[in-house]
Design a protein around this nucleic acid. Structure first.
Lengths: 164, 164
DNA sequence: ACATATAGTAAGCGACTGCATATCATCCAT
DNA sequence: ATGGATGATATGCAGTCGCTTACTATATGT
């Protein structure tokens, strides 16, 4: 069955490049573009990811946080240290289990997160303005849907056809 | 102006996470999911990227190819060596400038590329089936549009409103 | 109380990447 | 013909990442 398309030209099928082939470089470019904004607020990419994740839900345990932002649990320790030293987050031992740390944003941290996020949001809006008005919302919906999928479902997304 | 949103809850604004914050992990997951498919064809990610890039337009000079797929020019040499040894691509000195190499897929390479691409395409279709029917096309259009933008325009996407 | 398990921390390893340098062949302008 | 650019190549360095191991403090089940 591969042969039918194999016989076609280079722009066979719908000419759509690989999803990952578009997504990965685009992600890289987005990250590169955001970096200066973050640097202006003294944030690294990981630090920003932490602030975003904490803002969305005050997190119990660092491992959970690490998992949530797709980082290694041992690698965010330094990041958390830095944020804590700057008074942007609080590490508070959970009274019910003194092994785990409750992580929460300080008002300061919330302010910085919002400032950085607004800076990035303004840039994103200009970027998204490049999309056709009709596509923009659907694009964002699609992106959110896919990025919310658990990893296993991406690896093996079940049967092919939702009643088309 | 940051304060207006700073006062809101965690899901303030439109609750949209950062673009890069969605795109980068998603890209990683996509890549991870594609890897087994590629491995089954004996291809690395870079090798596959090369095959795709060559398929789309026979490329003059390796630097150009490297740039096209966002790789380091010195790092794809080994990849090209491997592909050439397996008879998947041809490195032919340009008769008009014998310093540069013309890079082209052999029929074999074309076959392998298509086989791998079809495998990936099948998986992608199942994944994209997770999106609402109305969103799917727009999502792909948006993704293609953005990923086709030159890096500079992503870094600085000009004024907010596109001369619609 | 004792054994087992888990959270956070520290340190190191291997792989990959981007970046820089050096070499050689070839081209181009003078 | 000569000098200065350029493409491909080889090599090495530094930074980052994911992963593993080990250690400490704490919790839980027996």
């Amino acid at each position: 069955m591969a042969e039918s398309t194999a016989a076609n030209g280079p722009e066979a099928d719908d000419g759509r490049p690989d999803l990952a082939a578009m997504m990965v470089p685009l992600g890289r470019a987005l990250m590169a573009a955001e970096l200066p904004v973050l640097r202006a607020h003294g944030l690294s990419m990981w630090a920003y990811a932490v602030l975003l994740a904490l803002g969305e839900e005050p997190t119990r345990s660092q491992s959970a946080l690490a998992q949530a932002i797709g980082a290694d649990k041992t690698r965010i320790i330094g990041v958390l240290d830095g944020l804590q030293d700057r008074g942007l987050i609080e590490r508070r031992p959970d009274p019910r289990d003194r092994r785990v740390h409750l992580l929460l944003l300080t008002p300061e941290g919330r302010r910085l997160r919002d400032a950085a996020r607004n800076g990035i949001r303004r840039w994103e809006d200009r970027l998204l303005a490049r999309l056709a008005d009709d596509d923009r919302e659907a694009f964002l919906r699609g992106l959110r849907t896919l990025s919310a999928l658990p990893e296993e479902e991406i690896a093996d997304p079940g049967p092919a056809a939702p009643p088309r």
